[in-house]
């Protein structure tokens, strides 16, 4: 693990589907709704494009929280993508919980293109959760050769 000189700041990766949530994030910007700069958005075509690998990779590379945003169930641009995402993420989150990783480091939120306010609020509350959880060490420490 690298030595940090600066005080810890959370690093949050947000996967946003192109059609609803990314547009919702844009709307938050257009309405000048503030949320912390710790949130970095990655655009994906649909929430069903988010591979559990991406989420684990983010944690592996030092992310403290990962949030997946998609269209509301029933509103998916591709009709069923978010339904698949919902099952996949439910199972993945349950597994992470089972391994003893803190609840709340991962989240799924449905944000429509009209919900700029909800996007900003979601990010604010998510950052708050991550700050209260502190640095993400558990996933990295899960397999520790020294023990």
């Amino acid at each position: 693990m690298q030595v940090r000189n600066e005080p810890w700041k959370p690093l949050i990766v947000a996967f946003c589907c192109n059609w609803c949530s990314y547009a919702g994030a844009d709307l938050a910007g257009t309405n000048r709704l503030n949320y912390p700069a710790d949130v970095k958005i990655i655009r994906v075509p649909c929430s069903c494009r988010v591979n559990p690998l991406f989420i684990l990779r983010a944690f592996q590379r030092g992310a403290d929280g990962v949030i997946v945003c998609g269209c509301h169930p029933g509103d998916c641009h591709y009709t069923s993508g978010n339904y698949y995402a919902r099952r996949r993420m439910t199972l993945l989150f349950s597994m992470l919980d089972y391994l003893g990783i803190e609840k709340g480091r991962t989240r799924v939120e449905w944000v429509s293109a009209a919900e700029g306010q909800k996007f900003a609020e979601t990010m604010n509350s998510f950052v708050e959760t991550i700050v209260s959880l502190g640095e993400n060490k558990r996933l990295e420490d899960l397999r520790c050769k020294t023990e």
Binding site: L11, V13, V44, N51, F54
Partner: peptide, 19 residues
């Protein structure tokens, strides 16, 4: 895999953000 949003492209974005 998906052209334009391939596995390693998204992974590279994740890596760049989490560097």
């Amino acid at each position: 895999d998906l052209f334009g949003f391939s596995n390693n492209q998204i992974m590279a974005e994740v890596d760049a953000i989490c560097k």
